[in-house]
């Protein structure tokens, strides 16, 4: 992996073909000036920021990314970067151009049969993931590469490569999962299916981040830029459960995690995950995990 400051432009000499990277490239700079990178075809990668908000324009759409979020960009998408604030620190990680080939090859022929036939014909179509991901952990991993990239630590470069490789394998799995879910959308045109899927996924990410708040179907519909009833139908089509069931399941999984890893009382956990009644929480928990929270905790201890 190579760490470099942000260039004035990424590929002025070649307006058609995305840049070909012979290694992983991490572009990073804490900007002391406004930065305006003209639109160009991009390679597959991740766009983030370690400080301030950065505006990444992908295929004409504005995506405001702040710390804790990461935008996944697919190869060939058109990228422009514009930021006027001082002190913003954009981070752009572009993968080695051969990485998709290598990872796919090893996953298909390395004993781990990951991909099923329908996806085999789409090895480079990562568009199902092309959106902002609210993923603090992924953001941390990208940020950790900055430390490794500058490090004189022994085998630092090897460590960076392995982290990137693992990150890419996870993204590939996520993309495959997203592709499968997207096929549930009943739409004639592939582009419509993709657009609906992206909106539903964005709303699901938002639910993941706000699971403990009192959110309504209307709130989620706004995030998905859809009428709430239409959103409800589409969400159910994609994930085979309603948004309400999805939220309850999220809360219960979080509760289980808290029971396993903290000393919080059941009352406190109930409040943390946004349940009003301990009684209904206990019933739902038992329904999901086979035993009430108190018994689950005793078994854990």
């Amino acid at each position: 992996m190579f760490v470099q400051p942000l260039p004035k432009s990424f590929n002025v000499d070649n307006e058609i073909i995305p840049p070909d990277y012979s290694d992983h490239f991490l572009f990073f700079e804490e900007l002391q000036r406004s930065y305006d990178c003209p639109e160009h075809p991009a390679n597959i990668g991740l766009l983030a920021t370690t400080k301030g908000n950065c505006n990444y324009y992908v295929n004409g759409g504005k995506n405001q990314v702040d710390p804790g979020k990461v935008f996944f960009i697919s190869r060939g998408s058109r990228l422009a970067i514009r930021t006027t604030e001082k002190g913003v620190a954009p981070v752009l990680l572009f993968f080695h151009s051969k990485l998709p080939d290598l990872v796919l090859h090893s996953l298909i022929y390395g004993g781990e049969v990951l991909l099923e036939k329908p996806f085999d014909s789409l090895p480079f179509d990562f568009s199902y993931l092309e959106r902002i991901h609210v993923d603090e952990q992924l953001h941390q991993v990208v940020a950790s590469l900055l430390v490794l990239g500058d490090s004189c630590g022994s085998f630092a470069s090897l460590q960076a490569d392995m982290i990137i490789r693992e990150m890419f394998e996870n993204l590939l799995r996520k993309n495959q999962e997203a592709y499968k879910h997207s096929q549930n959308v009943q739409a004639v045109k592939a582009s419509t299916r993709l657009e609906i899927f992206k909106r539903i996924s964005t709303a699901r990410d938002w639910m993941d981040a706000h699971y403990n708040a009192a959110i309504t179907l209307e709130d989620i519909g706004v995030v998905a830029a859809m009428n709430s009833q239409h959103f409800l139908r589409m969400f159910k089509q994609v994930y085979n459960i309603t948004p309400h069931q999805y939220l309850i399941d999220l809360k219960l999984k979080k509760a289980k995690q808290l029971l396993e890893s903290t000393e919080l009382t059941i009352n406190e956990i109930c409040q943390t995950i946004g349940f009003e009644s301990v009684f209904s929480f206990s019933i739902l928990f038992k329904g999901r995990f086979g035993q009430p929270p108190s018994q689950f905790r005793r078994a854990e201890q």
Binding site: S22, D23, S154, F155, A156, S157, L158
Partner: peptide
């Protein structure tokens, strides 16, 4: 040249410490 710099130098440096 690119991978040589990275692997020859990076790996030998790493092994020296270990």
């Amino acid at each position: 040249e690119e991978t040589m710099r990275k692997h020859y130098v990076g790996d030998s440096k790493g092994w020296i410490f270990y």
